Amino acid sequence: MALLLTKIFMTMAQHPLDHLRIDSMLTDPLADTLSAFTVVGTELVRFESSVPFETRFDADERFTFGVVITGSHNIWLDGETAPVRPTAGDCFLLTGARAGRAFNVEGGREIYCSDYSGGSGGVMRVGTGSMNDVVVAGRLTLDKEGAAWLREALPPVIRLAAEAAAAKPTGSIIELLRSESEADAPGRRLITSRLADVLLVQTIRTHLADNPEATNWLAALTDRQLGRAIQKFHADPAADWTVASLAKAAGMSRSSFAERFRRRVGLSPLDYVTRWRMHKVRRELLATSLPFATVAYRNGYASRTSCSHAFKQVFGYSPSELRAEQKLTLSQADGARPPLSEPSDDSFSL
Rank of each mutant, 00 (worst) to 15 (best):
V126I: 10
G127Q: 00
K144S: 15
E163P: 04
L142K: 02
E152N: 13
N104C: 08
F103P: 01
V157F: 03
S181T: 05
G138V: 04
A137Y: 07
V126K: 01
A165D: 15
N132H: 05
D133Q: 00
R151I: 08
I174H: 08
L177D: 11
D143S: 05
V136Q: 01
G127E: 05
E180N: 12
E175A: 11
G107C: 10
R159H: 04
N132M: 03
R125G: 03
E182F: 11
S179A: 09
K144Y: 09
I173Q: 08
V126L: 08
A165T: 10
S179M: 13
E145I: 07
T141L: 10
W149G: 11
T141R: 08
R178S: 10
P169F: 11
S114T: 15
R159A: 08
G118T: 01
A148D: 10
T141E: 13
L140C: 02
R151Q: 14
E106T: 14
Y112V: 15
A164Y: 06
L150R: 05
K144N: 02
L176I: 04
V136T: 06
E145V: 03
E152H: 14
G129D: 01
I158L: 09
V126D: 00
P156I: 08
R139S: 11
L176Q: 10
R178C: 11
M124H: 05
P186H: 06
R151H: 13
M124F: 06
A153W: 11
E180V: 13
A148M: 07
D115F: 12
S181V: 00
S179T: 13
G118N: 06
D143F: 03
L150G: 01
K144E: 10
N132S: 12
G108D: 08
L142N: 01
V157D: 04
V136F: 02
G171W: 13
A167L: 00
L142D: 08
S114F: 15
E110Y: 14
G100R: 12
P186T: 04
G119F: 10
M124W: 07
S120D: 15
I111E: 06
G107T: 15
D133P: 00
R139K: 12
G121N: 09
A166L: 11
I158C: 03
A137G: 13
E175W: 00
I158M: 09
G107I: 14
S120I: 05
A137E: 07
R151G: 13
R109G: 11
I174L: 13
S172P: 02
D184C: 09
A164S: 14
E145H: 13
S179H: 07
G146H: 03
L177G: 02
L142F: 07
E152I: 11
D143K: 00
W149K: 11
D143L: 01
L154C: 07
A153K: 03
E163C: 09
S117I: 10
A167K: 03
V135R: 02
G108A: 01
E106M: 09
I111H: 07
